[in-house]
């Protein structure tokens, strides 16, 4: 998902827990929300920082593939909708960095880790957006996959994260709808538009499936995250749900999903489908995807080019505070 490979500890059995840990686990099991001032195991805090941080970084880097088409949007209305959508994503980044800050890590620290490559963002944003139908495919498939993951996370145990998810989910369904609306225009448009739509489908299908992270059998330590309710469903469960919902939508559009093994399985009441190429996934995560260099390079450049701007504002703010202090001293 937006947090695809979050390292966490091996799960602890009840006997191995300290009394504090046991009381904490009881609260989580009872569905209580953990708040910033509450006691929490260090592993819980660290895992959450990684997960929320990855999620926040994904929102921020996620501006870039769609930002790529704002100046080329084909109508004023599409341009306005796309701008509003990308603006929402930046807002999501803001909510999530704020949620992470309640765990004692600053936005600047997290950004430093993103820029130095120590923290990751979702693999999906390392794929290029090559034609206008990609704006449809991103909204429909990428935001669609994000929703699959984020809806259950509204019930996550950590209060600030849960509340951020509730705000974000309200906007995500609009993102998916605007994507599908672009896809409809393209799929039912001229032959050239239909070709773009199919091309976008072909390129985004497997990367969208990768968003849910590796298969459960290769997914390390997700049991502890699930016990802590910072992960609600397994990767494979969510991927299956996504495929089940997406296939009929693609059929309605008259688009072919690029998977010869895709077939309805009556017994499991779901589709059978091919796994994405996991070696490609791990290459992308390592930094060798089609756009890793461009995406991270853009973010680093924006940050470095903006240093004088941030310094200017800080210097002004410090001087203003100094003036206020001097004035209050003089008044005494």
């Amino acid at each position: 998902m937006y947090a695809q490979l979050v390292k966490s500890d091996a799960i602890k059995s009840r006997e191995d827990m300290s009394p504090e840990e046991r009381a904490f686990q009881d609260r989580v099991d009872a569905g209580e929300k953990i708040e910033p001032k509450d006691w929490m195991p260090e592993g819980y805090r660290k895992t959450l920082v990684r997960q929320i941080g990855q999620h926040a970084h994904s929102e921020i880097v996620g501006q870039l593939p769609e930002g790529n088409w704002i100046t080329r949007a084909p109508t004023l209305e599409r341009k306005a909708i796309l701008l509003a959508k990308v603006q929402d994503e930046a807002g999501h980044g803001l909510y999530l960095y704020s949620a992470a800050e309640t765990l004692g890590v600053s936005r600047d620290e997290l950004l430093e880790k993103l820029h130095s490559g120590k923290m990751k963002y979702s693999s999906i944003f390392n794929y290029p957006t090559l034609n206008w139908a990609d704006m449809g495919a991103v909204g429909w498939l990428v935001d669609g996959a994000a929703i699959m993951n984020q809806v259950p996370l509204q019930r996550t145990s950590y209060g600030p994260y849960s509340r951020a998810m509730i705000r974000i989910c309200k906007e995500e369904s609009f993102h998916q709808r605007q994507g599908y609306s672009i896809m409809m225009k393209m799929a039912f448009g001229t032959p050239e538009q239909k070709e773009m739509a199919q091309d976008a489908m072909n390129r985004f299908w497997y990367p969208a499936l990768m968003m849910f992270g590796p298969s459960d059998k290769d997914s390390v330590h997700s049991a502890q995250s699930m016990a802590w309710k910072i992960k609600i469903n397994t990767n494979d469960e969510l991927r299956q749900k996504f495929v089940n919902e997406t296939v009929p939508q693609a059929e309605y559009l008259g688009l072919t999903i690029p998977d010869e093994n895709l077939a309805w399985n009556e017994e499991k009441q779901g589709y059978d489908f091919s796994e994405p190429d996991w070696s490609e996934f791990f290459e992308v995560i390592k930094g060798n995807g089609p756009c890793n260099r461009e995406r991270l390079g853009d973010r680093v450049k924006a940050w470095e080019d903006g240093a004088w701007f941030r310094d200017g504002l800080n210097a002004y703010a410090e001087r203003a505070a100094e003036r206020r202090r001097a004035a209050s001293v003089a008044a005494e």
């Binding site: 921020i60 501006q63 870039l64 930002g67 704002i70 100046t71 004023l76 341009k79 306005a80 701008l83 509003a84 990308v86 603006q87 930046a90 807002g91 980044g93 803001l94 960095y97 936005r107 853009d298 450049k301 924006a302 940050w303 080019d305 903006g306 240093a307 701007f309 941030r310």
Partner: peptide, 26 residues
């Protein structure tokens, strides 16, 4: 203004610039 999208010096500016661009397109 929209050319800044995703490239602002700080997140709050990204949001404000996108918002300004959006108003102007309106």
């Amino acid at each position: 203004t929209s050319e800044w999208c995703g490239h602002g010096p700080v997140l709050e500016e990204d949001i404000a610039l996108a918002n300004t661009a959006l108003d102007l397109i309106g």
